[in-house]
Design a protein around this nucleic acid. Structure first.
Lengths: 283, 283
DNA sequence: CGGATTCATATCCTGGCGGTATGAGTACAC
DNA sequence: GTGTACTCATACCGCCAGGATATGAATCCG
């Protein structure tokens, strides 16, 4: 049962990149420019791809290009496959370095104070190697783990865990951060209904979205936004002009350790063990 | 941050296939034969791959080939990436068929009797399309889901859920199937300790491993092996010469519905909903 | 020490892939 | 309705990537 439904040649990474570019641009000319090539060979490559798959991927008139159902399927799967290929290259290049490191992806200040303990426990283990910290914003940890830039991650409840193994470490409530001058700041406890309609950091347009804690604090102090940090983060960042209040019905935040599910590296295993140990001791 | 750590060209599917073949054979000549090509171009391709990755993948003397640490990393990741590429092709080809079907992978008799109900509930939904059943042995369901031959699976507690989303449907105890003539058959209840040392179907060498229920039953009746079927399966297969007994400390079996985690097909969603509904009604 | 085995090197050649020039179909202005 | 601009398809050319064959070099074994 090596290859039962064989209906033509082999998919190639180059073709997948071409197709993704066109599917995203829906325009052969622009896609060709983005790929750094001319339009005709691109047209021909897609036609060849369609022939080999026995599937029409794009509806095209001379004025409009659109995806077929099959094209939509390929777009999703091609992105996943390309990600896997680049991850393979990145991980291999890293593994070949004279002294490979354990690359830990995390979001600054979202370690619930566990990081120093975890690192200490990790370094005591035999399988431990040097650690590189990879700081990133919301969601970048998952991306880094999937595309091979990181080996293990420390992150609050991953939304998109596809391809990752996850181990929860610590669950803690989130608070709401308000301007001290906010009318609601007088009340010791709030509910989500009280906060309905308030802007969160993610609600701002990308151009003015805050990129770090200092920017978030400024916007909170001004009353532009409110913010739901985990309790441990709030406790470590007392700040004039900003108050924290409990919110009765706000879902808590769970700090997790995550790693690519096909990973067999002893260093990653050691890190996960260390994290589990420290969280058990803390919990 | 398009491609920060750029250290040479692009990995290609062809090269990954070459590398996997060599890594598995650890012999250039045999790998070349398997790939249907001559040995020299294969050697050159691997050398080029190593140059582009900046990583030595294989230690070779004229008499022995072995994987380096980096090669081991690439072998794992290349397999995953190749699987993703062939899955993309298979799914696209299937989606392009005039009337695509929902391909349900399952293990015969391991549906806990839920399948008819699930199919009925599924077909009542608007998003339902025709169903193809894909029967396979242990572990083949996961494989089929990952490589694009199946869209959704019904399977007992998947061991290797990498890249799959899983929803548990029904947990039920497993029993032990014994020859009626077995001394232990006199006792109403057993423990794992009583059965220590007995052969299970998986313990047999691949050549004589049973491939279906009839073969398993024969071996059980002969006393060659014992077997741990889920209760619902045992109930539907009473059989002369074989008795079922409860085992106090045997882990139960959970029937699950599983699907590729990046899937957005409405037909799959409908099937999962139907399965959840039926299992809730049954539970 | 000689033969067998196996990976590397040298050289040739074909076909795939990209480029340029041009055709053809469609939307839109007026 | 007709011209114009836009965009995808076709035709054709040229280069080099990648495969084949022949041979060399290194190691193991008797």
């Amino acid at each position: 049962m090596s290859t039962p439904e064989w209906s033509g040649g082999e998919l190639e990474v180059r073709e997948l990149r071409y197709f993704v570019a066109i599917a995203e641009e829906l325009h052969f000319g622009r896609a060709a420019t983005r790929l750094g090539m001319a339009q005709p060979p691109l047209s021909r490559a897609i036609r060849e791809l369609e022939r080999r798959l026995g599937a029409q991927l794009l509806e095209r008139t001379t004025r409009r290009v659109s995806l077929t159902a099959a094209g939509d399927v390929l777009l999703r799967d091609a992105r996943v496959a390309l990600e896997a290929v680049t991850a393979a290259a990145r991980r291999t290049r890293h593994a070949a370095r004279p002294a490979p490191t354990l690359r830990v992806a995390l979001k600054a200040d979202y370690d619930a104070g566990l990081l120093p303990g975890i690192l200490a426990a990790y370094h005591e283990q035999a399988a431990a190697i040097a650690v590189d910290l990879l700081l990133g914003g919301r969601g970048e940890q998952e991306q880094a783990l999937r595309d091979g830039r990181a080996d293990v991650g420390l992150l609050p409840t991953p939304a998109e865990a596809r391809g990752l193994d996850v181990e929860p470490l610590l669950t803690e409530p989130r608070l709401v951060a308000l301007a001290a001058t906010d009318p609601l700041a007088d009340r010791p406890t709030l509910s989500l209904a009280d906060l309905h309609g308030r802007l969160l950091p993610d609600d701002l347009p990308a151009s003015s979205a805050p990129r770090d804690l200092a920017q978030i604090f400024m916007l909170v102090e001004l009353g532009t936004i409110i913010w739901y940090p985990p309790r441990s983060l709030a406790e470590r960042h007392p700040r004039l002009g900003v108050v924290y209040r409990r919110v009765t019905d706000l879902t808590p935040s769970t700090l997790c350790v995550a790693w690519p599910s096909d990973c067999r590296s002893p260093a990653v295993a050691a890190f996960v063990r260390a994290a589990a140990t420290v969280s058990a001791a803390a919990g």
